[in-house]
Design a protein around this nucleic acid. Structure first.
Lengths: 346, 346
DNA sequence: ATCAGTTAGGTGAACGTTCACACCGGGCGG
DNA sequence: CCGCCCGGTGTGAACGTTCACCTAACTGAT
């Protein structure tokens, strides 16, 4: 098997099988218009030479794409990472290749920088639109090649209806559910440690989780405390949450994700407040570790992997109309009650 | 900027600038043999048409690769994920593109399956060789295209010397350091909750962490307890570690990574054993969350990101001899003592 | 003036594939 | 018996680059 020789091309196969290169191409692509005997001869030659098609040449010649580029800003976040895994699995099943391109906020100043990340114009692309670079990339691609892109991100029902290229889950609804749960437990109000919003500035129209949370509080006639902005890292969250855990009036905190929740638990512990006795903490995303913290974290499950898979299917549909539009079949967000939440002690 | 038109090619630029396509190519690739005036004309035409080179065509024509494929088996593990991030950053800095291809153990039966993962023969490849599929891929690529591959994995000094294509860190030494630390604390012996080995079977020659641990115990004349094998997931670890935490004789556990350590802490808590009072727990990798568990996890820091960067540089060196061989400049593993370790209580 | 050496640039053929079309023979309806 | 359609196959031109080679024109020394 170990031939250090040059890889065989379609022409080599053609010569060996005594047919034209085009016939080989037809066999490889499973065209029905080729006689069984010829097909066998070609297949035999393919096996003998160990031929396998060259993806580069295929796309160059304008054949089917068979490749996706994923644009994301932060691979260390659980959500994007899990979605990427979903995309990769779905792509692999169909033998597509996956390219990953990270949008560093530092060198994503102009639209051209984003376009330059694409290996070629028209390359099918999935964008993780959960933060500022992602949102910008989404906008650029939407202008440039709307038919060959799909964005993953939080949405509201309205947005989803208006955007046939959007895939994701209803973060607002999920946050609302978690907030309602805490209210029902008897907490006077719920505070919010927020992840950065997609627009970079806090409290903009794109903070879906914060919106769902605020809406429920308003509907219940509770005071809506100022949400506390945090960065994405645990260290930032730990710093940001200090005033919240120091305030004895605060009895419940909804955190923008499980990492922020872990930081909150740690900060509460150091401030001498017990969880869930003095303080209820609820996370977001059901990150794998969340079931194994002590106490185990109450959180909202999000099936990012399915969303990734859905994004890939939608992309296929958009880039090649012949494939049926996939129905969004991923599970709804679901509150998972574990040990960090309970009634207020007062 | 939003031109839905066909992308400009080198020929379009050539026509507009009134030169030949080859001259455009020279300008794009920064060849010195082109007059300043001509260069300016070409540059202007490039700007006007928004031309950008097509990577596919470039590689097809046998130009510089400018692309890496990363072969990995599990993207949800912290180590590979961080290494991938390092590779991506280094690649992006040089404007290389990164392709990721996941080796599912389920469909990686034959060597051909692995080769099929490559977009083309001779494609520069980095392999995460920390588990069985990874090791097999390493072997296959080594046979097939040794000059265009690099493997990331744990190593011993001997292996490193013998393998110019290997990059990684000395897991054995790091485990030894952690074990020695626990022994110095006064523990009679140290138990080990082990990650799966690269060969799939436990205790084979490739369990670097387990080896370093066992070596120190032997050298200190202590009993070497049977290591407890665990899978990669937290859930598996939680199950596997039960007998260990139930045994009051066990006062110190070295865990194969931080996720296993978290599971161990959880299991200990449920078994009514306090950490570090009754039981010391030490993790591996310094996963971001490890500083924020309660109590905070003592662990061994591993700079996977630097290793990823190093792997990329080494690959460049190997694929294009003109680039100097990089010196492995990543930091040594370092024990980070936090709150889960202490002297035995007895 | 002549000639070798340099410098700036052009020409044509790869690279491995697909696409659009042309071709050929046979069965079938008229 | 003629023309038509159709299954099966071949031909040539893309696709956007780079590579290897060739050609002018200009230099400066003989």
């Amino acid at each position: 098997m170990a031939q250090p020789k040059k890889a065989a091309s379609i022409w080599d196969v053609a010569r060996l099988a005594g047919v034209s290169h085009q016939t080989v191409s037809r066999v490889v692509n499973g065209s029905p218009r080729v006689a069984a005997a010829t097909r066998d001869k070609v297949l035999e030659a393919i096996a003998e030479l160990g031929y396998r098609p060259n993806r580069l040449a295929r796309s160059l010649a304008g054949g089917a794409a068979e490749s996706v580029t994923v644009l994301t800003a932060d691979t260390s976040l659980y959500g994007p990472e899990a979605a990427l895994r979903g995309i990769e699995k779905a792509a692999r099943a169909l033998d597509w290749s996956v390219q990953i391109s990270v949008l560093d906020p530092a060198d994503t100043h102009s639209d051209a920088d984003i376009i330059a990340r694409l290996p070629r114009a028209g390359e099918p692309t999935i964008i993780m639109a959960h933060d500022e670079p992602g949102m910008r990339a989404k906008q650029v691609l939407l202008d440039q090649q709307p038919h060959a892109m799909v964005a993953i991100g939080p949405y509201t029902a309205d947005e989803l209806a208006a955007s046939p290229w959007l895939v994701g889950m209803d973060d607002g609804k999920a946050a609302a559910e978690a907030t309602r749960y805490l209210l029902d437990l008897g907490h006077a109000t719920v505070h919010h440690l927020a992840i950065p919003t997609s627009t970079g500035t806090f409290g903009g129209g794109k903070a879906h989780r914060a919106e769902g949370w605020a809406r429920v509080l308003r509907e219940a006639g509770r005071t809506v405390p100022e949400p506390v902005p945090s960065g994405w890292t645990i260290a930032e969250a730990f710093k940001a949450v200090q005033p919240l855990v120091a305030d004895p009036e605060v009895t419940a905190i909804l955190c923008g994700n499980d990492h922020l929740a872990l930081a909150t638990m740690r900060a509460a512990h150091l401030a001498g407040r017990s969880v869930p006795g003095d303080l209820s903490v609820v996370g977001f995303d059901n990150t794998p570790f969340s079931a194994y913290t002590t106490p185990a974290l109450t959180t909202v499950n999000q099936d990012f992997e399915s969303v990734g898979r859905g994004a890939f299917e939608l992309l296929r549909h958009r880039v090649d109309g012949s494939i049926p539009r996939p129905v969004p079949g991923w599970p709804e967000p679901e509150l998972i009650v574990r040990e960090t939440s309970g009634p207020p002690s007062s």
